[in-house]
Design a protein around this nucleic acid. Structure first.
Length: 117
DNA sequence: ATATTGACTTGGC
DNA sequence: TGCCAAGCCAATA
């Protein structure tokens, strides 16, 4: 029988975020969609904010739908995200990246295999 | 119990 | 390009 406890919405967001490959990015809305939470972009943002550092999530690969870093420009978080993205070879100009070039397009069947739900 | 606040998105102008 | 209004809903106030 199945004793696996259901994952919280935040945990599902975290699980999907873990699958985003180096050098690629996703939007909050896309992250929510892939986690089975359509229309819940805000929840995705909140989930990342609440994520424990011990999870070492690639949170920096998550941008808003316009391809822009959603943290306050110049803030510590903004600067760290920009730095981390550049470390992976992602070109960031004015706090923004070209989604047409870097947006992750996952193979849904494969993603399904990876996720615990 | 009502109101405001977000690491957001989309459509319309 | 940019601004605005809706829609979203858990957490805060």
């Amino acid at each position: 029988m199945n004793n696996t406890p259901a994952l919280s919405k935040e945990q599902r967001i975290w699980q999907v975020c873990r699958q985003v490959p180096t050098g690629k990015v996703v939007s909050y809305g896309q992250l929510a969609d892939l986690a089975g939470l359509p229309g819940r972009a805000r929840l995705a943002g909140r989930a990342l904010k609440l994520a424990p550092d011990t999870l070492t999530l690639p949170w920096h690969r998550v941008l808003n739908a316009a391809g822009k870093i959603s943290l306050p420009p110049g803030s510590p978080g903004f600067l760290e995200q920009q730095y981390r993205l550049r470390e992976e070879g992602v070109v960031v100009r004015n706090g923004r990246v070209r989604m047409s070039e870097y947006q992750w397009q996952p193979d849904l069947a494969e993603l399904l295999w990876q996720l615990p739900f």
